[in-house]
Simulated scan of single mutants.
Amino acid sequence: MLSVEGLTLEYGAVRAIDDVSFKVNEGELFSIVGPNGAGKTSMFNVLTGLTPATSGQVRLDGEVISGLPPHGVAQRGIARSFQNLALFSNSTVLENAMAGRHRLMQRGLFAGMCFWGPAKREEIAHRARVEEILDFLDIDHYRHSVVTELPYGLQKRVELARALATEPRLLLVDEPAAGLNLEETEDIARFLLDVVSEWGATVVLIEHDMGMVMDISDRVLVLDFGRLVGVGTPAEIVKNERVAAAYLGEEVI
């Protein structure tokens, strides 16, 4: 489904991503892990068009998408959540999630302003779908709460809800368990598994909680200083000496 070929991202003399290639299969929960500064979020920024790659290509179903702007990437069915929350802080949970429906709306500005006929029916249909998403994430009873009034763990779910509202085929999730307690982490893990099994989406996950990664991932890719040092099933990764060296701070050859 997703093919990354020889991807390199340079900031001056620094290579945030160094000639990385990998593939993600449809219906897979694929995780990217590595120490801080390994290039994980930089990878997401390139995949979603926020940062242009220095070289290499990204393909989705065979189509080259590297070089597309973020809205072009989103139109092709890729959505993401952010490591640092990027919510509309003065808006409600429902309004934040509805923002994710923007790419799917067909009616123009003036029809929306008048809010009648087809535009009204479209808004009602999108609202119904968003209500399903909020119910799925168990935050439907917070729909009218301003997001800044919610605990951090619930704000993480709102971020995920907005991404799901775009109806992605490929969902990129950046450290959803960061700052969460054990129960909240288990909930996020369950939601991601359900997104794959029930919603039919493919998930690429960045996460530091290795217990969660090893429990739910089909395959794991390990980065260290922008370089790929290992990719395989969780069982293969834990036995990989190059991966162990990267995490222990030893030199990786």
Rank of each mutant, 00 (worst) to 15 (best):
L134W: 03
F115D: 15
N96Y: 02
E183K: 13
G179K: 09
G112H: 07
G112K: 01
D138Y: 09
R127T: 06
P168R: 02
L164N: 08
K156T: 11
M105H: 06
D174W: 02
A128M: 02
R129H: 12
L134Y: 06
T166P: 01
A125W: 04
N181E: 11
E122L: 09
L164C: 09
P176A: 04
E184V: 10
E122T: 11
R103D: 09
T166G: 12
D140N: 11
I139T: 12
R129G: 04
L182M: 13
F136H: 03
H102I: 11
L104A: 12
F115M: 11
L134S: 00
E122Y: 02
V173T: 01
P168L: 02
M98W: 03
M105G: 00
L170A: 09
L109N: 11
E184A: 07
V173A: 04
A163N: 13
E149H: 09
R157S: 13
Y142F: 14
L104Q: 15
E167K: 15
L170D: 03
V130K: 06
A99Q: 08
F136L: 08
A128H: 11
C114G: 13
G117V: 00
A119T: 07
E175D: 12
R157W: 03
R103S: 15
A111N: 08
P118F: 03
L182C: 07
T148G: 05
I133K: 13
L94M: 08
A128Y: 05
W116F: 13
K120L: 00
N96W: 01
S145H: 12
E131G: 00
L94W: 07
Q106C: 05
K156C: 06
R143C: 10
I139L: 05
E159V: 03
E184L: 09
A163L: 10
P151I: 08
E123P: 01
P176K: 00
G179A: 10
D140L: 10
V147M: 10
L104N: 14
G153D: 12
M105W: 10
L160T: 10
K120P: 08
E175M: 02
I133Q: 10
W116C: 10
R107T: 14
I139P: 06
E95Y: 00
E159Q: 13
G117C: 06
F115R: 02
P168W: 03
E122C: 07
D138T: 09
G117R: 04
D140R: 14
E123R: 05
R103F: 08
A125D: 15
E123N: 04
R121Q: 05
T166Q: 13
E122H: 10
G179C: 04
E95R: 04
N181A: 10
N181C: 01
A99N: 09
H144I: 06
I124L: 11
R121T: 05
P118R: 08
N181T: 13
G179Q: 13
E167M: 07
Y152T: 08
R143D: 09
H102P: 01
Y142S: 02
L180Q: 03
D135Y: 01
V158E: 14
V158I: 04
L154S: 12
A119I: 05
A125Q: 12
P151S: 13
D174S: 06
A128C: 05
E159S: 07
L160R: 14
A161W: 15
R103C: 11
E132Y: 03
E95S: 02
Q106A: 11
A97C: 08
E183G: 02
A111D: 14
